[in-house]
Amino acid sequence: MLPATLLVVVFLVGPFYYMVYTALTDLSFADASHAGAFVGFDNFRKLMRSDPFFWSSFGLTLKFVVIAVLLEFLFGFALAFLIFRFVASQRLLTTLLLVPMMIAPVAVGLIWRLLLQGDFGMLTYYMRKVGLLAQNGAVLSVPELVFPTIVAIDVWQWTPFVTLVMLAGMMSLPRAPFEAAMMDGARPFQIFRDVMLPLLRPVIALVLLLRGIDAFKEFDKVFLMTGGGPGTLTELVSIYAYRVNFRNWDLGYGAAVAFMIYLVVLILCSVFYKAVYWSNSKPASAF
C-alpha cells in the first residue's frame, strides 16, 4: 500500500501540482523572455475571457460527448437487449462485437483514414455508389462531414462497451421480479418498462458517466484522423491543449487549459463515485 501511494504521489500528484503551479506562470519554450515568472491568475483570466479557441473547442467537445454517448447508448442498449433476450451462448458473439473497442485508438484512427481516403477509400467508394457522397475528395476534408464522421467513428468504437456492460447488468438482474410481474399480469412491454428499466437504472447511469468521461478525454483517434482540422472543425479540448502545449510551446497557458479539462472530468468523476455508492447501498440492484 505504501509504495503504491508513494508512486502515485510522485508521478501523478507531483505532476498535478506542478501543472497547477505552471498554470500560474508565463512559462513558454517558444519565447525566451517567458522563463516561468509567476503571473497569478492571468492565464485563467485570459482563458475565461478572451480565448475563443478554448471556448469553441469546449463547446465542440460537449457536442461530441452528448451526441456520441447518446447514440452509443441507444445502439448499445438495443444490441445488449437483443443478445440478452434471444441469444443462448453469448461468448463468441460478444467477443466479435468487442473488437473495435479493444484495438488501439491509434489503429482505429488509421483504419478509418484508410477507409475514408478520397481516391481509393473503400467506404468512400460505396458512399459515392449509393449517393451519400457527391464530391470526389476524402471524407475527412469535407467540412460538413468531418464532425459527423468523427462522432460516427466514436460510436463505432464504443457502442460495444455499452453493449458489454448493459448485457452484464441484464444478466445479473434477479429473475424473481420478472416472474412476479408476469404473475401480476404484465405484458412483455410492461415488464420491460416497469421492471427491467428501473432495475437497470444504476447500470445505465454508470455507463453514461463512464462513456461521458472517456469521450470528454478523446484525443488519439481524432488527432490521428484530422489533427483537429480542417481548420478547427474537429479541435476537441484535448487537441487544443495539445496544440497550445506542444505546438506553440506555451506551457504556462497550456497548463491552465489542461487544468480546466481536469476540473470537468473531476466533477464527472465524483458524480460517478456517488452513483456507485448510491447503488451499493441498495441490495436489489445490479451491483
Binding site: 424473481a176 416472474e179 412476479a180 404473475m183 416497469d194 432495475l199 437504472r201
Partner: peptide, 13 residues
Amino acid sequence: MGMVFQNYALYSH
C-alpha cells in the same frame, strides 16, 4: 392466478 414467491420478489424500486 396470483403467486407468492419464496424470496418475496417485491419490486425494490
